[in-house]
Every structure is written in structure tokens, then in C-alpha cells.
Design a protein around this nucleic acid. Structure first.
Lengths: 354, 354
DNA sequence: AGCATCACAGATAGCGGTATCTATAGAAGA
DNA sequence: TCTTCTATAGATACCGCTATCTGTGATGCT
């Protein structure tokens, strides 16, 4: 009695082989197409495959061939436009390189990140892309380094996207953009407009990205010979709500502030909402600048002056770096940013523009 | 000479077993924890695992155990807030059920969707979740049906999220929300405000979701004894740009329109931008309503009156339905929507509110 | 003491592919 | 004509894990 795939079971190479009257090996060759098979034989096999609706078993294949054609990427939250844009870049590049995407979220929880990277190791992903800022703690840096080494040992590759490598000589690829420079440029823009009391709002303490941004903010102040006032740096989250709350407090405590540099566009949206609620006009009374240039930025009222970050390219580069490695291949890319001037920044009312 | 994992190769069960001085089977039992192992033995094994930094091979496991612990979801574009929110729901539920997420995008291309579903079949995903509206063509319906049957045959499950099942008796689960009812409610709201010439903007021709929405729009007109004017339904894409372009044309051709019902909030953002550019005030001159209630909606100026769609729940239900199937388990869920009234709708200037 | 019962650990056989070697025709060359 | 290729297909041995069966001391019971 001919062996036929029972219901609920998928046909295997052997099933196809039997139906086509050839060996399993021949079918395998037709499927992967990396070995000459005589046209008539190939036709028979293709026919049998179609008849049985055969699909290869990716797990069996990666077990035998030790290559998974899979890249994993780990983000805080898919919902954030920042991550979504990078995700799009990753997905694009991955699929154009014939890879599948594994998606995991950490909700900003370092513990979950640990679990998730472990999961990716189980999956033998070719690359694991960690997106977003890193926590500036020694243990976190140590753990990232451990990830990198563990993945390397497994023949996989860690890619840090939008965060710096924790130490030199680690087997990681990094794709970054110039946070410090961007923050410097935007702060300079505000200073050049005559602002002297500029609040930086939405700083998540101890996150690499913001630390760099604050550094740029400070350097700009120094270069313009404006004293740095620590009380103008307001810690919070990267959310709209945080922007609102921080702004409420800021307006209350520091009515002398004439400009707000929000850590992200999302925070800026919250800032604008809070100011509007309080009857503060933007940019007449207070200027507001953002960071990211997410699609929403130009839809805010007033349209947001912000820093453009090439998110999608960030994602694409991450995959490219991970997949094309070899002698002479780069393993570190720094992408440029630039400020986008819209309508939310203007000189302060009583400004003495230099 | 003791067999040790060579560099570049990951340790296997056998390596751990050898180091712990037990059999591979015992190690397997410790790892999966579904069989009693004497505490001292377990300790030895755990020690060896830690020493070697052992990680199971998910592919080998799913090959042997014939269960992949993976759900796949297929969206048009991760960047769209609509999809991102659903994705979040999917990811949440999946990870809380111990499943991994495979992400694929189709860019609205039915051909790519075909390829992608094939890929998911190769991966033996436990469930494949198709997100977003379906094309209303016979061949598309036929193909969806084919997907459903093929996946069912492989012991997997197709879940349609936000689109109806193409035919009865198909092995699919569906999670929908009431497009027709929501559009009816919103149109009624506009009509009740006194609007009589309401444009529906951003209709992608032949997409199930919009067809349903247009149906609700028409039913509301009928119930309010207002004639349906086909020239007020403007076809386009679900993008901000499309909203802008369609509005430009609309204002030009139909200056008598007093309200615009945008197909999505994203389109509404474009509509608002176009109206603002033309100096048309919202809601004083023209009212605008959206659909989706994405986070951006409340940040628009004026804050957008829109239909709230429970995206995240949609995603969660999709996973739940796919994973918990059995006698008596539901395989179809319809989630409710409701309109969210903000500031973008008001009676028309010369309105005679009934 | 004598035997059934446990609780645990090992042996074995695949899961569904691919790498690699071997076998067998027919074509080509001497 | 006989050997040597070359093109094609088959056989075999894993990849790393789990299901399932078998073995064996220690325990409980009469």
C-alpha cells in the first residue's frame, strides 16, 4: 500500500519522492535548485510537489544546513513611531536579502531583554538587532558584552542600532546616528534665535541616547557662553504623557523659560498639548523643538522644528552590516542627522538676537 | 579524548550530557522539566549547562516535538499606527502564551502576500494572522480560502484580523470590528449636526473595510432621508498624502461640502493639512471626522473626532483564538467600536439643526 | 524472605531535511 | 573496441532533539 501523507500531517520529501518515482535526494535537489537535475526528472518532481502541495520544513532544513535565514530584532515597543520606522527598514532589507524577521519586544525592561535574547539564541537567528538606547549601567554594559560574545560563539551576530558599543573589541556591529551633534545643532539653533533659558525635557536618566543629547545640549551652551543650568534638564519618559506632565511642572516652576527642547517628537507632542492647555502660545511665547522627525511632527500645530533621524536607513544598515561580514567589511556605521526647521521655533519676545 | 564543542559550534545536549556524566536523555529532561529527575542529578546537569553556556536548538526541538511555539503575522506596513497597534496586541498575547512572533510585510501587494504565507507554511507557524482589509475580488477570496485550507491541513490556523471570512465553513478564525456600524454612527453624528453634503475621502476601491464603511455611510444617509451622492465618495489611498490630494480636489470641485469623513485618521491628518493650507477653518467652515483613533488623533489641531477601533485587543484576540481551539471554543469575534467626540466636528455655519 | 512497585536513568528510533560519497548509464576519446 | 569521462541519481550518515520503551536498584507489602 503506497504510503500517503495522513490527514493532519504534511507531505515530506519522501512522499514527494515516492510519488515522482525518484529518491528523496533528487527532490531535495529540485527544491533547493543548487545541483543539476535532468529536465524531465525535474518536471516529474515539480508535478508531484504541486500535487501534494509540498512545502519544505524550514526547521528540518536549518537543522541540517545549519543556516536559518532569520534575523531577529528586539525593540521596546512596536507602537512607537521611532521603532516602527526602524522596524520597517529592518524588514525591508531582511526580506530583500531573503531573510525572515523575528520580532520581540521588551517594554523597556532589561530583564525581558535578557530573556528575549536568550530566545533568539535558541532560534539560531543569524543576527540579533537590538534597537534603541542602552542603559548606562555597568551591569547592563557587561550583559550586552556577554550577549555579543555568546552570539558570536554561536556563529550569530549582535547588532546595536542607535546605541554605542559598550566596549572596544567586542564582536558587535553598530549603526548609530550622531545624537550629540544633533542635540548640539538644535540647541545652537535655539541659542542663535536668542533663547537663553532652554529646558531639556523628557530625559530618561541613564539612557545612552539621552546622555549624549544632553552632552550636545551642554556643549552648545558652553560654545555660546551661556551657563548650564541643571534645573532646566527635566527627567521623564519618552512618552507624550511625560511631556505633558513635565511641562506642567516646568511652567509652574520656571516661568522664565523661553524654549523647550523635547527629547523626542512624542514628548514634544505632550509639551505642545500642555502649553496649549495653559494658553501659552507657540512659538510666540515659548519655542518648542523635538527630536526624531517622525511623520507626526509636521502634523502638529505648529509644525514641529525637530532633528531628522534616518530611522529606516538605520534599520536597513543594521541588517546589511549583520549579513555582509568578511575581510574588509565595515562593522560600524554612523549616520548623519540634520535639523528640520518648521514653525515651532521663533526668537523669544524680548530677545536680543546677537 | 573528551569530545568538546569546537569553536564556532554550539554545545549540544550530548556535550552537556558528557560533561555532567549522564545521558543526553537526562539532560533533555532537565531542560524541558516535564519528567522527574533526582535533585543531585539535576544539579550536576544544570552546572554543566551553565559551564558550557548551553542553549537548546529550537529547530531541532520543533522538528522532534512537532510544535513550533511560533505565530506569524502579516501586515501591510509596520509603520502604520493601525498595524503597529495590532502588532503590539499580537506580540503581547503571543509572548504571554510563550510564543514567538514572526513578522512579515506585504506592502499591500497581494503577490507578496502569497509568498509570505508560503514562507510561514515553511516555518510551520502555529498560526498565521493576516491583518487588515481584504481585496474584494473573487481570485483574492479564492486564494484566502486556499491559504486557510492549506494551513489547516498542516495543523496550523489562519486568522483574519479586521477582515471578514471570504466564505462560510472555511477553517479560519476571524476577529473583526464593526466597520459598517461605526461608519453609520459617525455619519449619523455628522448628519445630526446638520451636515447634508458629507464627503467620504480616502476610499481604496475594492477593499473590504472601506466597502463596509461606505455601506454604513450610505445607510446613515438613507435613514436620515438624505440622498446619497456618489460624487462625494473620493477614492484614494490610506495615506496622509492621499488625504491632502483628495481634499485639494474636493475643495475645488465641491465647495458646497460642509463635512469630510476621512477613511482613516492618517487620511484625516492630510485633510486637515490641506484645509489649513487653503485657509478653511475646522470645524467652523468644514467639519472633519476620522476613523481608527490612533494616538495621533488627539494631537491634531483641532483634536480629531473619530471612531475608536480597539486595535490592540484585536491583535490579542487573534492570538487567543488561534491558540485556544477545541470543542466549544469560539472562532469568530466581533469587537465593538464607538465614536470619540473631540473638536473637529461642529454644525455647519448655515445649519438648521433638526 | 519473596515479589510487586517505584523512581529514576539509559537506549533506541525517528522528526525531515542536506552533505557527501558512491553507482550507473551514455558520450567521448584513443 | 575498450577505457575514461561526465552527467545524473541513489545511499548513507548525520543535524540536535524528544517519544517511548527498557533496565535496575531501592522500597513497600504480605
Amino acid at each position: 500500500m503506497p504510503r500517503r501523507p495522513e490527514r493532519g500531517k504534511r507531505p515530506t520529501l519522501a512522499d514527494v519522492a515516492e510519488r515522482a518515482g525518484v529518491s528523496a535526494m533528487t527532490v531535495s535537489r529540485v527544491v533547493s535548485g543548487n545541483y543539476p537535475v535532468a529536465p524531465p526528472t525535474r518536471a516529474k518532481v515539480l508535478r508531484a510537489m504541486k500535487d501534494l502541495d509540498y512545502v519544505v520544513n524550514a526547521h528540518a532544513r536549518s537543522l541540517a544546513a545549519t543556516t536559518t535565514k532569520t534575523v531577529a530584532f528586539v525593540v521596546d515597543d512596536v507602537t512607537g513611531p521611532f521603532f516602527a520606522l526602524i522596524a520597517r527598514g529592518v524588514e525591508h532589507q531582511a526580506s530583500s536579502e531573503g531573510r525572515l524577521c523575528l520580532l520581540c519586544t521588551t517594554h523597556g525592561d532589561p530583564e525581558r531583554e535578557l530573556a528575549v535574547v536568550e530566545l533568539m539564541r535558541e532560534q539560531r537567528a543569524e543576527a540579533v538587532i537590538l534597537v534603541g538606547g542602552a542603559w548606562d549601567t555597568a551591569t547592563y554594559a557587561e550583559r550586552t558584552a556577554a550577549f555579543a560574545r555568546a552570539l558570536e560563539k554561536s556563529g550569530s551576530r549582535l547588532v546595536l542600532c542607535g546605541r554605542p558599543a559598550p566596549e572596544e573589541g567586542l564582536p558587535v556591529s553598530t549603526v548609530e546616528y550622531d545624537n550629540e551633534g544633533a542635540a548640539y545643532a538644535m540647541t545652537s539653533h535655539l541659542l542663535a534665535n536668542g533663547h537663553r533659558r532652554i529646558a531639556y525635557v523628557g530625559r530618561a536618566v541613564g539612557l545612552s541616547t539621552t546622555d549624549e543629547r544632553v552632552a550636545g545640549y551642554r556643549r552648545a551652551h558652553a560654545d555660546h557662553a551661556v551657563g548650564f543650568d541643571p534645573s532646566l534638564v527635566r527627567a521623564g519618559e519618552f512618552t507624550r504623557e511625560s511631556g505633558t506632565a513635565l511641562t506642567e511642572a516646568l511652567v509652574e516652576e520656571r516661568p522664565d523659560v523661553t524654549a523647550v527642547f523635547a527629547a523626542t517628537d512624542m514628548v514634544a507632542a505632550g509639551v505642545l498639548a500642555a502649553l496649549r492647555r495653559r494658553g501659552v502660545r507657540v512659538p510666540e511665547d515659548v519655542s518648542v523643538a523635538g527630536f526624531d522627525d517622525i511623520p507626526l511632527a509636521s502634523d502638529l500645530t505648529p509644525a514641529l522644528t525637530t532633528v531628522h533621524v534616518p530611522h529606516e536607513q538605520l534599520g536597513r544598515e543594521a541588517v546589511r552590516l549583520a549579513l555582509h561580514r568578511g575581510p574588509g567589511a565595515e562593522d560600524r556605521v554612523m549616520l548623519g542627522t540634520h535639523i528640520v526647521i518648521r514653525d515651532s521655533v521663533a526668537p523669544p519676545r524680548a530677545a536680543v538676537v546677537p
